[in-house]
Design a protein around this nucleic acid. Structure first.
Lengths: 208, 208
DNA sequence: TCATAAATGGAACTATGTTCCGTTTATATG
DNA sequence: CATATAAACGGAACATAGTTCCATTTATGA
């Protein structure tokens, strides 16, 4: 179940041979296809559709993901990874304040694709129970780094808890229905301005 | 043959005949069976199981409830009706304070059977969209009457909003996981004692 | 080049919602 | 009471979805 051997480039240390190249390619194709299909049709989209888009048989899909909830969870983790990783990339390419703003926008896009997943989270499926923790342990450090850098540069106030901000932005993104994107954008801008307001001033936790 | 020169005494205002007795009987059997099956196996229980328990074919079931969400919604409304109606019955048979306490316990039992439904509520199905309003328009007046009677009798404080109390008790009931029943009971008792505390004193909204 | 185990694809199996339609039955009417 | 008839019924059949199985293909080490 919890096979997380991804980073190791060529670590085929022991028993059998190493994972076949086509197998790895297909796993990737399935994850990518699933991500697209879930975004387009929700997490209840048929497995067959995902397999088809990945150019793969359902048998191949099931070899890697014994049931659909495993696939859903895997896509979720992968998107968390991607979004969290972008924090460092943005930090390297922009000023601390810009990096923070850009990442928060990126994060709202992540949230936007998770509408249907919220329901699945409460479905009682064991596979999903670790996802909230995965979410937090990845996003909190990433955002904390951005916040601290921006605060150190005097671009925003200090004393803002990353988790509070994650929740606040998450709730903002969910609340709106029609024209959700624009509304979320405006609210997020407001929030970011709020962070800037006390820049370099006192260190008081004011947000939330 | 589409005509009847008599006033429609029943609920059917249509010109046809009145609903056949067996049809009404079966509808009732289906609703009762569905209530039991939903309570035992959750709202995702198969339609066939409900039909079987009701001693009816699936065709009969679908004649009355064109799809499963209609059935779920109907059961929900019926249970709301039953629970709300009990408020008046309890009020007639007990002292105002007792009636209030008994009904709140009854209400926690209602909530307890709605675990799976919470997810369905957010499924986006049109049929479910009216349920929250149905819930409120039935329970709020019922509980308001109990509260006012108990307050008038000097058994509890006044100024407590029924809707706030409904939400509070609802959240209490959902929060707990293991040993939920007992935990909910203790919390509810605490809440009721809180209501009693300021009995006949000042009229301040304190709860919630 | 070759042997072999890994990997594959998709038919087949199962479960579930929904529809269809031949049969049964309640009821109005004479 | 007998009868015609539309309503109601039951459950087989259909559609769609998750999951399993296995004969066939293929990457890879030797």
């Amino acid at each position: 179940m919890t096979e997380s051997s991804k980073a190791a480039g060529d670590e085929a240390v022991e028993p059998g041979r190493r994972i076949r190249a086509d197998a790895r390619r297909n796993e990737d194709a399935v994850l990518e296809a699933a991500k697209q299909v879930f975004a387009a049709s929700g997490v209840d989209a048929p497995v067959r559709e995902i397999a088809a888009r990945a150019g793969v048989g359902v048998g191949t899909l099931y070899r890697r993901f014994p049931n659909r909830s495993d696939l859903v969870a895997a896509v979720f983790r992968r998107e968390v990874d991607a979004c969290a990783a972008e924090a460092a990339a943005l930090a390297a390419a922009h000023s601390p304040g810009e990096a923070l703003g850009l990442w928060l926008r990126r994060y709202t896009r992540f949230i936007a694709t998770k509408k249907g997943l919220a329901a699945a989270l409460h479905s009682g499926d064991q596979v999903f129970e670790t996802l909230p923790a995965y979410f937090r342990t990845n996003f909190e450090p990433a955002l904390t780094a951005l916040l601290e850098a921006a605060a150190a540069a005097g671009e925003i106030r200090g004393g803002v808890a990353a988790y509070d901000l994650l929740r606040a932005v998450g709730n903002l993104s969910v609340a709106s229905g029609e024209e959700g994107d624009q509304h979320t954008q405006r609210m997020l801008d407001l929030l970011i301005d709020g962070l800037r307001y006390g820049a370099a001033a006192r260190q008081e936790p004011t947000v939330r």
